[in-house]
Write a protein that binds this DNA or RNA. Structure first.
Lengths: 226, 226
DNA sequence: TTGAATTGTTACGATTTTGTAACTTGCGCC
DNA sequence: GGCGCAAGTTACAAAATCGTAACAATTCAA
């Protein structure tokens, strides 16, 4: 899959240059000059990285940046002037990196690559290991002692969330929100219970005395191994 | 635990300034001007971050950087001149970030924080330690001498509140409010009494002569160890 | 269209926690 | 010491939570 980059800059020249260079470097490029459109595009197309000019007309780059960070999309901020306080604003606002215009294209490319490598990381970030449990986030699979366990999509989502909070309990409410996108659902807790039970049948040697998938009374569940 | 930073720069002035600023910001700082010594220090003391001048005499910063990266220690590269090719070299060599001299101190601090947050990300355990008692706020667990104590939700809430006010008494009324959200409840004091009793059975060796969970006559309770 | 896999619902027993009451103990003060 | 009140203990009933089975609905692919 090609890496998608979204360029947000009101200067058409910059857009064109960046697009040319980035496409040449093998990236898939989208671009816009408007802040509000940028947010919509980011939400719709889920780019791997946004290059954002801080001096946008309309919805300012400084306002836009935290919104993008919330979507967990890394941002490189461009500023028109090489002023220290703009650098600082850019970093404070949650940007992954900062480049000031006029910029060296090779430097920009290197910084892009660094961020891409880090975020979609060299498979280290893709595997979560908890004792003899291994969750492969990329393939969406669970292994126990190297043996693949066949999970339904719902079951996998639960495991993934619990694995991301390894050894620490996750509340049933959080599970409901993250797995079913349900903030309030009368039957919700039932659903959690049932699926936990189904999961244990698959991953526990003795489902009645679970070793991995434990309950915290009155709170929720946790994935552990000790 | 304090975050450790290793400064590698042959200019004594820079070393001094950085040490002063970073220590003021709450970091533990070591510094050296020699590249070979830097590597030894990094191996011995496992700093969380290295600030590395690229223009070192002897073992060059450019050579040193990949070695540090191999130890999976993040590096911020400093360069004496604002030359594009040095930036690029710094990034190519695996540095996490690049700052050129003369640098803005606030910017440097922000870049440091960003890297620290990213590398030791998320897992910062919130622990309150009172003698041999340890309250893990994230896992909602209590440990005594490293042994996990099984608490009910109510019991844990009480411990958490008392732990947050370690060594100072908390009134029964405050407990009622914080644990049961009850401003006035006739039977409230009974509830506090009973739960304190239940707690002591779990955490005290001799519940009749408590060592940790003490009473302040006519007022409330406190958690201590002396 | 059929059938298997998945998901959602309901019910119920087992277990654990919580609230209440009765009673005992212990502190502080006269 | 004796009194009053706060604190501690115990036992029991009520309530909440948990685990599981059985069954209905939905989805998806053959």
């Amino acid at each position: 899959m090609k890496t998608k980059i979204l360029i947000v800059d009101d200067e058409q020249d910059i857009q064109d240059v960046l697009r040319f260079v980035l496409e040449d470097a093998g990236y898939e490029v989208e671009s816009t000059g408007r802040g509000d459109e940028a947010l919509a595009l980011a939400k719709a197309h889920q780019p791997d990285l946004v290059i954002l000019d801080i001096g946008l007309p309309g919805l300012s780059g400084l306002d836009l940046c935290p919104l993008l960070v919330d979507l967990s999309i890394p941002v490189i901020v461009l500023s028109s002037h090489d002023r220290d306080d703009q650098i600082i604003e850019g970093l404070e606002v949650g940007a992954e990196d900062y480049v000031s215009k006029p910029f060296n294209l090779k430097e920009l490319l290197l910084r892009i690559e660094k961020i891409i490598r880090r975020t979609r990381g060299g498979e280290a970030a893709q595997l979560i290991t908890i004792g003899s449990l291994v969750v492969d986030l990329r393939r969406q699979q669970l292994f126990i002692d190297g043996v693949e366990i066949n999970l339904t999509p719902t079951e996998y989502k639960i495991i993934e969330i619990l694995a991301k909070h390894a050894h620490t309990p996750v509340s049933s409410e959080t599970l409901l929100q993250q797995v079913w996108n349900a903030d309030e659902w009368i039957q919700g807790t039932e659903m959690v219970k049932v699926n936990i039970s189904r999961l244990r049948k698959k991953i526990e040697a003795d489902p009645a005395n679970p070793r991995y998938l434990l309950n915290r009374w009155g709170y929720g569940y946790l994935l552990t191994n000790s």
